[in-house]
Simulated scan of single mutants.
Amino acid sequence: MLYLKKILDFYINSSAHVSLSALALTAMTVQFYAISDSFHCLLFVFCSTLVGYNFVKYDALARIQQNKWRIELKFIVFLSLFAFLVCLYLFFQFHWYVQLFVVFPMFLTLLYTLPFFPNKGNARNWKGVKIYIVSFCWVLMTVFFPLVFGRITLDSSVFWLSIQRFILIFVLVLIFEIIDVTKDDPHLQTVPQMIGVEKTKKLGYLLLTILVLIDVLKPQIHWIALSFKILVSVTIALFLYYSKETKSRYYSSFWAEGIPVFWWLLFTLLKS
């Protein structure tokens, strides 16, 4: 049992789980717009997410908990390096306009991690900004990147999909912020720190309602898609309802973060 726990911890700590969630959301966009030959697109999203998340979190963590992370961190660095080489290879296989697009989320990741501006620190430590940057980057990579890759014309459906995707990621991040509300630096001004846990949950419920209403108010209602969105929104709402500071990290880092994978599998099952 201890051995299985170590495997699960490595799976989460190496960012493989969050990368699988990013792949799942991208795969849904691919399916929505029937994008062919999408393997390189999906592989790039998975590997770039793994590299980006590990780049953001492990430099400081390795210094703070050096003894605890010494062996595991070596494996994570090796995995991240391999994923980076895959990203580099795929990048040079893309058309120039896809390469140009990728530069923007890459810059946001660097801005999020490195202190570009004097006396400002990195964007991760800017007051109240973190949740918006994270949500926006996920929309760029899981909605717009596959569309640019597949040369799909951007229309109103893309706009509404990006709004719904932003809401989905935003509410999922709220779950993390509630669980970490007593651990996060008060200077960060996360949503629960600013308005309290209960109001944060109410905000999440409101956003999920808007997510569903977007499908309800469309000129033509697709009942299967609407039922699917309702089911996913209820699932996220339940996770949000039961989130609190005393929850274990598995609650957010494994179960809540795995919701997009559940969403993708359910969507694939309903579509088949």
Rank of each mutant, 00 (worst) to 15 (best):
M1D: 09
M1L: 14
Y3K: 12
K5D: 10
K5H: 11
L8D: 00
L8C: 01
Y11A: 05
N13K: 14
N13A: 07
V18K: 01
T29F: 02
Q31S: 06
A34G: 04
F44D: 05
F44N: 03
F46K: 06
T49E: 00
T49P: 01
L50G: 07
V51A: 03
G52T: 07
G52V: 00
G52Q: 03
Y53E: 10
F55C: 00
V77N: 07
L79M: 06
S80N: 05
F84K: 00
L88M: 11
L90F: 05
F91Q: 05
Q93L: 08
H95E: 14
H95P: 12
W96F: 13
Q99N: 10
L100R: 13
V103T: 12
V103W: 07
F104Y: 14
M106T: 15
L111A: 12
Y112C: 05
T113W: 10
K120D: 13
R124E: 10
G128R: 13
V129C: 09
Y132G: 02
L140D: 02
M141S: 15
T142R: 09
T142F: 14
L147H: 06
L147F: 07
R151W: 14
T153R: 05
L154V: 03
L154R: 06
L154P: 08
L154Q: 02
D155E: 15
D155L: 15
D155S: 15
S156V: 00
S157R: 07
S157W: 01
F159E: 02
W160N: 13
W160A: 11
Q164E: 04
Q164G: 12
F170Y: 14
V171Y: 03
L172Y: 03
L172A: 04
V173D: 09
I175V: 12
I179K: 15
P186V: 01
T190W: 13
V191K: 05
Q193W: 14
I195F: 12
K202G: 01
L203S: 04
V216R: 07
L217M: 10
L217H: 02
L217A: 09
H222R: 01
A225D: 11
I230P: 07
L231E: 04
T235D: 08
I236C: 03
L238W: 00
S243C: 08
S248L: 03
R249T: 14
Y250M: 07
Y250S: 11
A256R: 09
P260Q: 02
W264N: 08
L266P: 06
F267N: 15
